[in-house]
Design a binder for these strands. Structure first.
Length: 814
DNA sequence: GATACACCTG
DNA sequence: CAGGTGTATC
């Protein structure tokens, strides 16, 4: 704390420790201060959270579901848990937490608090293997995890830590959740559907496997069921990490910083992130490749589906034929009459009677080959041919004779023709339906495969090429992306969300937010620091790959979607729900009509009026929203653009409508983006806001927005933590977040006021978040992702998991 | 000096 | 959310 003396530091901390703690510039400083500050409950809480975060950070794996819990912190060396009942223990805990916090501020991970943390870490460890706080964070980098050997966790230690975890989780959830990537075509029989599902599942599995292979991050994977067991392992691992790693000297690493070994090494990167761009580029490239793969996969699936449908069609035809045949046999002609009526207009129709033969033949054929579709057509052709011949032959006679003559034979003949006609019509209609169905299915965003894992989150910078929705509001269809956000969402947490730039490499997970600015090219800025800068070094550049990256990471191949999202598991619908289709309503409407929050409105107004933001904005011009682009943007948002892809998708259309200013919709998008990255890099911002002409003002404004978002977000988290402490919560496992919770409400109001995102019950309750973080943000709605993501190790909840349990969700820190 | 961030205030 | 300030980094 170079700058601040302890007092000031304390004050400051007291006031605001929230947010920046993690990032803070002061990093190494305050160790001294850290020591005591008892009074700060908040701090303690923060510490707790951080601990929790730490834990959570690594844990991805998780079990998914339910059981994730985090272990709690335990005060003393031993991982003992603090007994809630004992006030003293609480005090100790708080103290430790405080210490930790302080140390944190120092930027180091305090060992003091270590015990607790370590225990927490242990629990979680596995997942990321990430180191402890900073270190932990560093983790995000992925490598970090690797660095930690010890994690006892089962797998965690392994190299593929996060990935594995992701994959595992993905697998777990995927199958079930994403059952039908394709919507079920109308008309398909149940058995067909089942068949399709089976195939689909197989395909998903294959995709998941691919994804897993592709991922290299996450170390731990745990099986949900074993969550607890795993947790233990994780903890061990984490602890080891902690021990192994020297405390960071000065700052924590920035959230995305790469770290792994680094972390352990204690080296932190004070420097700002420099290379993000490259990393991001790689990530993008990977994403693109993944997308292609996904598309191919989609094609394959569609083909399979088409084949199934064709089979079904054939079966239907056969059945029809059989029925007809039976009727014929019975000699009654209700059916015939009907057919005759139907085919009256048919050219082929003939009045002449035919012989029975046709009927008999058909019958026999049917008998012979009930199930052979091919016969159906053959018979139809033969019948037609026969009828034609008869018609020619009898026509003259018929003219002379009159119809009365037609006996049974002629009626049969007529019936044959009618049958032929009917069959033709049926075939045509059936084919038409099949084709339509296929087209529709194809057009719809398929649910992605599981991987989505979400999404979350990061976006691909580039956006995948996928089709974007430029025109089609319903980007789902247009894009065909699956939204899977597994979270569906919007999956596409996502997964993938986006961090475009940040995409992490394969391994990156960015659990943390990326630095806001990354100077893209060296040429442009010599600074490399994109990130956080100063104090912050904490932010680790490496980290960037926040969730977005994670998502990207995941998205692998399996998805067809462009996004990575996380989609894992959710079925077709987007998290958003119904509105998928068009984003009606306000989305489409002009900004004015939008139901934006007041602030937004005011912002818009200001902007519209040419308001210039302070010095930041000197050059900014007013925004000109309204355009289609915005609508699209909203649409995207609704669809949970969370996914990187979504983000990326924006660009296409945006290109045509580049605005010089930021509109309310952009603000909305920024909020959405915040779910994925708390510290977006400049590249990410550019990608995400491809429809905006960037200049210093815009960049500054965006940075400011994110700064504000962080502030709010961390305040909420801190508040939540504080309340929890006051309530006597000693164990993270006791923390719960449900829809009624203040945290949920606050976040939703702030970031989702217009309910652009529908946090559906299923998303909330059955999140399989294991993989959520970082890399795997797989499923769950963006909202949840957002909730999970927190900024710094310290206070942030980023590592929290919200799990659903029977009636409620828990926040886990893994 | 420029930049980015945290923090604080309105 | 914006404006301002202080700090750290480049």
């Amino acid at each position: 704390m170079p700058d601040h003396d302890s007092d000031s530091l304390l004050n400051r901390q007291t006031k605001r420790r929230r947010v920046d703690i993690g990032v803070k510039r002061t990093v190494g400083s305050t160790a001294s201060a850290a020591a005591a500050t008892p009074d700060n409950i908040a701090r303690a809480k923060a510490a707790i959270f951080s601990a929790m975060n730490s834990l959570s950070s690594h844990s991805h794996h998780g079990s998914d579901n339910d059981s994730m819990e985090c272990s709690v912190v335990q005060p003393h060396g031993g991982p003992g848990v603090v007994s809630a009942s004992d006030s003293e223990s609480k005090s100790n805990v708080l103290r430790k937490l405080l210490k930790r916090a302080n140390s944190y501020e120092d930027a180091m991970m305090p060992f003091p608090g270590t015990t607790i943390i370590s225990q927490l870490l242990k629990n979680n460890i596995a997942k990321n293997g990430g180191g402890p706080e900073r270190g932990e964070r560093g983790d995000r980098g992925d490598r970090v995890e690797t660095g930690f050997p010890g994690s006892g966790l089962s797998n965690a230690s392994s190299d593929a830590p996060q990935e594995d975890a992701c994959s595992n989780s993905s697998q777990d959830s995927t199958p079930q959740e994403c059952l039908s990537p394709f919507g079920r075509p109308p008309g398909l029989a149940a058995f067909d559907i089942e068949r399709l599902n089976d195939e689909h599942l197989r395909a998903k599995r294959a995709r998941v496997e691919n994804i897993i292979r592709g991922m290299s991050h996450s170390p731990s994977v745990v099986v949900p069921a074993a969550s607890r067991h795993e947790r233990d392992h994780d903890m061990d691992g984490e602890r080891e990490m902690e021990l192994d790693c020297p405390p960071p000297q000065s700052q924590h690493q920035a959230p995305g910083s790469p770290r792994g070994g680094e972390v352990c090494g204690g080296s932190r990167e004070n420097k700002r992130k420099q290379r993000l761009p490259q990393q991001q580029q790689q990530s993008f490239t990977q994403l693109v490749c993944q997308r292609k793969e996904q598309k191919q996969e989609e094609r394959r699936q569609l083909k399979l589906q088409l084949e199934d449908m064709q089979k079904q069609l054939r079966q239907l035809q056969e059945k029809f034929f059989q029925i007809y045949d039976s009727t014929d046999d019975s000699e009654h002609n209700d059916l015939h009459n009907d057919l005759g009526n139907m085919s009256e207009d048919s050219p082929v129709r003939s009045d002449t009677g035919g012989d029975d033969r046709g009927g008999d033949d058909l019958r026999s054929d049917n008998e012979m080959s009930d199930l052979d579709p091919g016969h159906f057509l053959d018979r139809a052709r033969a019948l037609l041919h026969e009828q034609a011949m008869l018609a020619d032959r009898e026509k003259p006679r018929r003219d002379g004779l009159g119809r009365g003559k037609a006996g049974p034979g002629s009626s049969m003949h007529a019936e044959g023709k009618q049958l032929a006609e009917t069959l033709k019509q049926e075939l045509n209609s059936a084919m038409t339906q099949v084709v339509d169905t296929v087209v529709k299915v194809f057009a719809k965003p398929p649910r992605p495969t599981p991987q989505q894992a979400f999404p979350p989150l990061s976006l691909p910078p580039e956006r995948f090429p996928p089709a974007v929705n430029g025109d089609n509001p319903n980007f789902h269809t247009a894009n065909q992306r699956l939204q899977c956000f597994g979270d569906v969402i919007i999956p596409n947490p996502l997964d993938s969300f986006p961090s475009m730039p940040g995409l992490p490499g394969p391994t990156n997970d960015q659990t943390e937010a990326l630095p806001l600015v990354v100077r893209k090219t060296p040429s442009e800025h010599h600074h490399q620091s994109s990130a956080v800068g100063a104090h912050g070094s904490n932010h680790h550049p490496a980290l960037h790959p926040s969730s977005l990256s994670a998502s990207m990471g995941f998205s692998p191949p399996s998805f067809r979607h462009p996004f990575p999202l996380p989609l894992m598991g959710y079925p077709f619908q987007t998290p958003l729900g119904a509105p998928t289709g068009g984003y009606p309503g306000k989305d489409r409407t002009s900004p004015d009509s939008m139901d934006l929050p007041r602030e937004t409105t005011s912002l818009r107004t200001k902007m519209a009026s040419g308001h210039h933001l302070g010095h930041h904005h000197r050059s900014c011009s007013p925004a000109h929203p309204g355009s289609t682009a915005e609508s699209l943007s909203l649409s995207l948002i609704k669809s949970e653009c969370s996914d990187l892809q979504d983000m990326s998708d924006i660009s296409p259309y945006s290109g045509s409508n580049i605005q010089e200013g930021l509109s309310p919709n952009h603000l909305k998008k920024a909020k959405l983006m915040f779910f994925y990255t708390r510290y977006p890099s400049s590249n990410m911002l550019k990608m995400f806001f491809s429809d905006v002409k960037f200049n210093r003002c815009i960049t500054s404004q965006l940075i400011k927005w994110f700064s504000n978002f962080r502030e709010f977000y961390y305040i909420q988290m801190e508040k939540f933590a504080r309340n929890a402490l006051l309530e006597g919560v000693a164990d993270v496992r006791d923390l719960t977040v449900d829809r009624e919770s203040e945290l949920f409400r606050a976040l939703n109001v702030h970031y989702n006021k217009a309910n652009d995102f529908q946090v559906r019950r299923e998303h909330w309750e059955s999140l399989k978040i294991n993989t959520l973080f970082g890399k795997k943000i797989i499923n769950n709605s963006s909202f949840i992702k957002m909730c999970l993501r927190s900024r710094g190790p310290e206070l942030s909840l980023r590592y929290f998991y919200m799990c659903s349990r029977v009636g409620h969700n828990r926040i886990m820190c893994t």
